[in-house]
Nucleic acid binder design. Structure first.
Length: 792
DNA sequence: ACGTTTTGTCATAAA
DNA sequence: TTTTTATGACAAAAC
């Protein structure tokens, strides 16, 4: 228990931090923004290697330490900012959805357990990423069974909150019970906690049976949300309560709103009671005390979820698709979990009265059956497999302008958005709902399996996103029109190919080959270099001849050793040139001059194998430098052979003015000058090639990232589309119900009901019109019948 | 020994 | 015009 308490405390602290950050949302936002570049570098690796080869630009701008305008860093930076903003703007544009997920994500380590038990098989059919998730969730399930929900991902603190909250908050709960709970409730809480504590790991089972019994016993007595609240689990509270309330008591849908918002407030109140930090008025729970009691007395009765989900777990294949989709979505939501989500939570939390009011307003109009089931469905499923489909077979009873009614829609939107956003956590509620709901409704209730494990996010996401077929199917399932589907298909097909650039360059290798052969055929080194000119391919024979020649060059030794030191062992010589210091910091490129001693010793060891006989000739003259010389580049050897009096680094890296000065200082012959120019050209080109390759690689990486982002965005948009579709269907359903109700209540002058075969209701900007059916084609020229205000 | 990746080089275009 | 940079293509080197 101490273990659990520790986790709970940590979770509470993190939770508190999260809550406090809600108040300063912008700060967190900027924090995230500031965090971004390093994160980006962590992901893609440092790209500073690009800057170091921009010698000329760096030098010309006299600012060797800033980011060069051409640098890929800048591209990265802006691209990342842009992508992030895109993602964020998606969130902003969204219907206030997925708000609850943040909270629920934090508190469902044992929901993962339940999810595992029911969804493992179906997930295992998915791609590898999902498989990984299954494993992970199973692991966490085993851990969760032990009571210590030590999850490996970063949110584990908050996660354990849900698992352990009731135990640890006992004292707090008692403290706060003084103002909100009756003694009876406190006793119940104590009993439950003691049972939980005593039973330890197995308490879920106990919880399930006992509380199920208890709640059933309570139902006839209380018959309100308290009964529902009793049996719901700590983390499943939001939806569960709403669903049960709606089911158990026969009241209107406002229960749902109440339950949903209050259950959030339960968390907040519990937090306040635990950590009595400054009273934040917007977190004050204003609901009935029973809600609070429900939150405090309900321990994580995960086995409820398991047991209840068991009958539902024979998921058929369409459900697998849904599960897959929801896995993806939940993962994405976790990934994109952002501040505005939580802020939206607060917003929702802030105005439960508004919600209640609006819901009540809409609910008072009618008191018939349909809205309840509608609300249940809203709460149950993310998408509409369970909804009695009303969109397609909607009668011509209504005008398409649903918005003109203007009465139901806002409420419905809010309802559906707030509920359907619980993708991550609906499974508990869903399955419990499945227990209570009649089979036709819950049989297709989605069994959300959300092993919320951020670690394999990218891979899973990628693979899942790449598993476009499921998306397509889902899209079709969700009522995509044919052209939309085909468009989607086109999009998917167009994902292939990263053709970076068109090919050009007629590539004539004959030139170099001929020169190569000529170099090989030539016997004298000086003749070789002069004949080669700028092309100068050096073959082994050439190198050998050059080295053989080196021994013969008189007065060469001192300068050669000096050159060697300058070239290889004294890079500090170039400290005056800032970009050359950068060269030494580069780990991948530009290392030939400053390779480490170990490498060089390896190389010398290897080189001793190769041309031993040639070495034997020269080791008598230069024992130590020979291998060093052998592993030097061809240009260096050539320079040495041509008796170039300065280093290749200077030749290559000096700016053109200094380079010309250097050339002017020494009196060099034509061959030497040509060689020096070639060395400079080749050296620069070498670095340019390295730079180019790195840039190319980075472009590919960036494109990959862009593809991932776009896939994420696409999935998000699809999800939004589904939510909107759901909302529209629900709205239609509700309007239909209202219309039926209204129509049934209409009476003509003699008090007789209107015949549905003769009249129909038409919605216009002025209200609802009762139109005779034979006039339907005349487009309601005359509202010859009475015009009824809908709110009558 | 052979296949793959990395690196150096050249040709060429563009800045 | 000259120099530098970028990049495709090729081959050698390295792995």
């Amino acid at each position: 228990m101490l273990y659990l308490k520790k986790y709970f405390t940590e979770g509470l602290i993190q939770f508190t931090i999260l809550l406090s950050l809600i108040g300063v949302r912008l700060d967190l936002d900027t924090y995230l923004n500031n965090q971004l570049p390093p994160l980006h570098e962590i992901i893609l690796g440092p790209s500073s290697a690009y800057t170091q080869t921009q010698f000329h630009n760096l030098r010309n701008t006299l600012d060797g330490y800033g980011i060069h305008p051409k640098s890929v860093d800048l591209d990265h930076f802006f691209a990342t900012r842009r992508l992030l903003n895109q993602v964020r703007s998606l969130d902003h544009l969204r219907v206030p959805s997925t708000e609850l997920s943040a909270w629920l994500v934090h508190r469902d380590p044992e929901t993962v357990v339940s999810a595992t038990s029911q969804s493992g098989p179906s997930i295992a059919l998915d791609n590898g990423g999902s498989l990984e998730d299954v494993n992970n969730s199973e692991a966490s399930a085993m851990r969760g069974a032990g009571g210590a929900s030590e999850t490996t991902y970063s949110l584990n603190g908050e996660d354990s909150l849900g698992a352990v909250a009731p135990e640890d908050s006992q004292e707090q709960g008692e403290r706060e019970s003084s103002d909100d709970l009756s003694k009876e409730d406190i006793e119940i809480i104590d009993i439950l906690w003691r049972q939980d504590i005593d039973l330890g790991a197995g308490r879920e089972v106990f919880n399930y049976s006992s509380r199920q019994k208890e709640s059933e016993a309570d139902k006839p007595n209380e018959e309100n949300e308290e009964a529902g609240g009793r049996e719901e689990s700590w983390r499943n509270g939001l939806n569960l309560r709403a669903v049960q309330n709606l089911h158990v008591d026969g009241e209107t849908g406002e229960r749902l709103q109440e339950g949903t918002s209050l259950s959030l407030q339960e968390c907040l109140r519990l937090l306040e009671a635990t950590f009595p930090f400054g009273e934040e008025p917007e977190f004050q729970a204003t609901g009935p005390t029973s809600q609070l009691r429900a939150s405090t007395e309900e321990t994580p009765s995960t086995s409820q979820g398991i047991a209840l989900q068991a009958p539902l777990s024979q998921s058929n294949t369409p459900l697998d698709l849904e599960q897959q989709w929801q896995d993806i979505m939940s993962i994405m939501e976790l990934q994109d979990m952002e501040v505005n989500n939580t802020a939206a939570n607060v917003t929702m939390n802030n105005d439960p009265n508004n919600n209640n009011a609006s819901t009540t307003e809409s609910a008072t109009i009618e008191s018939f059956e349909l809205p309840r089931s509608t609300l249940i469905n809203q709460d149950v499923s993310l998408h509409q497999a369970s909804l009695p489909s009303c969109s397609q077979d909607f009668p011509t009873l209504f005008n398409p302008e649903l918005d003109s009614t203007g009465v139901q829609r806002p409420t419905l939107v809010r309802l559906s958005s707030s509920n359907s956003s619980n993708i991550n956590s609906t499974y508990g509620a869903t399955n419990l709902t499945g227990l209570f709901l009649p089979p036709p409704l819950n049989s297709t209730t989605n069994l959300t399996t959300t092993p919320v494990l951020p670690d394999p996010f990218s891979s899973l996401l990628e693979e899942s996103m790449l598993d476009e077929i499921s998306l397509l199917d889902l899209a079709m399932e969700e009522g995509f029109s044919q052209d939309q589907a085909s468009q989607l298909e086109d999009e998917l097909d167009s994902d292939s190919g990263l053709s970076l650039d068109s090919s050009h360059s007629p590539a004539s290798p004959s030139n170099s080959e001929t020169s190569c052969s000529s170099a090989a055929s030539s016997s004298s080194t000086s003749a070789t270099f002069s004949e080669e000119g700028a092309v100068g391919y050096s073959t082994d024979s050439e190198a050998a001849s050059a080295e053989a020649e080196e021994g013969a060059v008189g007065g060469y030794q001192p300068e050669y050793s000096k050159l060697c030191r300058m070239s290889y062992q004294d890079p500090s010589q170039f400290h005056g040139i800032p970009q050359l210091e950068n060269v030494n910091h580069n780990h991948t490129y530009n290392q030939p001059p400053a390779s480490s001693y170990s490498e060089r010793s390896q190389l010398s060891a290897s080189c001793s194998k190769k041309g031993r006989d040639k070495q034997m000739q020269q080791t008598k003259l230069q024992p130590p430098q020979d291998c060093v010389d052998r592993q030097s580049s061809r240009d260096e050897r050539r320079a040495r052979a041509m008796d170039i009096p300065f280093s290749n680094e200077k030749i290559i890296n000096l700016p053109v003015e200094e380079f010309n000065e250097l050339l002017a200082k020494h009196h060099l012959n034509e061959d030497q000058l040509a060689l020096i120019r070639d060395i400079r050209r080749r050296g620069k080109n070498k670095m340019a090639a390295q730079n180019c390759r790195k840039r190319k690689l980075d472009t590919i990486l960036k494109l990959e990232q862009g593809v991932q982002d776009l896939q994420r965005e696409k999935a998000q948009l699809l999800k939004e589309k589904m939510e909107y579709g759901k909302c529209i269907r629900q709205t239609k359903q509700k309007v239909q119900s209202l219309s039926q109700e209204l129509f049934a209540q209409l009476r003509d002058e003699e008090g007789r009901p209107y015949s549905a075969s003769e009249y129909f209701l038409q919605y216009g900007p002025d209200g609802v019109l009762l139109m005779p059916r034979n006039m339907s084609t005349e487009q309601s020229n005359k509202p010859d019948k009475k015009q009824k205000d809908k709110k009558k």
